[in-house]
Simulated scan of single mutants.
Amino acid sequence: MYLTGLITAIGYSTRPILDNYSCREIAKNLCVHPTTVVYWVRQGWLKAKKRYVNCYQIKSRDLEQFFNNPPQPIRHRIAAIDPQVVRYLVG
């Protein structure tokens, strides 16, 4: 994360070029297991488009909405996520 902070400090964007993420990409950045993100999708907490079995595509705007209004059962968990990681994912 040091490099991300350094890049941001000098004015460059660290945000990925694509506006879509896989569950695996989100899980890697949030330091959770990919099945956790799939669970959030299946619960209807995180909007996603199904690509194939257990593979979903999540738009950054849907991820932003999830972070801004997390479901009650995991609100404390979402609140504990590093804000730099959230900014990296949603811009």
Rank of each mutant, 00 (worst) to 15 (best):
K47N: 07
R61N: 05
P34E: 10
I58V: 15
F66Q: 11
Q43P: 07
V41A: 09
P34A: 09
L46H: 01
P34R: 02
Q65E: 15
T36Q: 11
W40E: 05
P71G: 10
Q43R: 15
N68M: 03
Y52V: 10
V37K: 12
F66K: 11
Q57Y: 04
P71E: 09
C55S: 14
R61E: 06
K49Y: 03
Q65T: 14
C55H: 14
R61A: 06
Y52G: 08
K47E: 09
E64T: 03
Q43D: 09
F67H: 01
E64C: 09
W45S: 13
K47S: 08
E64Y: 03
P70D: 09
I58D: 02
I58R: 01
V41M: 11
V37W: 12
V41Q: 08
Q72T: 14
F66T: 12
W40L: 06
N68D: 05
P71M: 10
L63P: 06
R61I: 06
Y39L: 13
L46E: 01
I58E: 03
Y56K: 04
G44A: 12
D62S: 02
T36K: 05
N68Y: 01
F67R: 00
V37P: 13
V53T: 14
W45H: 15
V37M: 13
K49G: 03
P34K: 03
K47F: 00
V53F: 11
Y52E: 14
F67G: 00
V32W: 02
G44Q: 10
P71V: 10
T35I: 15
Y39N: 15
K59W: 04
V41L: 10
Q57I: 12
P71F: 06
W45N: 13
T36F: 02
V37E: 14
R51N: 03
W40P: 03
R61T: 09
V53G: 07
N69L: 06
Y56M: 08
V53M: 08
R51M: 05
P71W: 05
N69R: 04
N68R: 01
H33W: 04
R42V: 07
L63I: 06
Q57T: 13
W40Y: 15
R51G: 02
R51V: 10
K50G: 03
Y39M: 14
F67S: 00
K47W: 01
P71D: 10
N68S: 04
H33M: 08
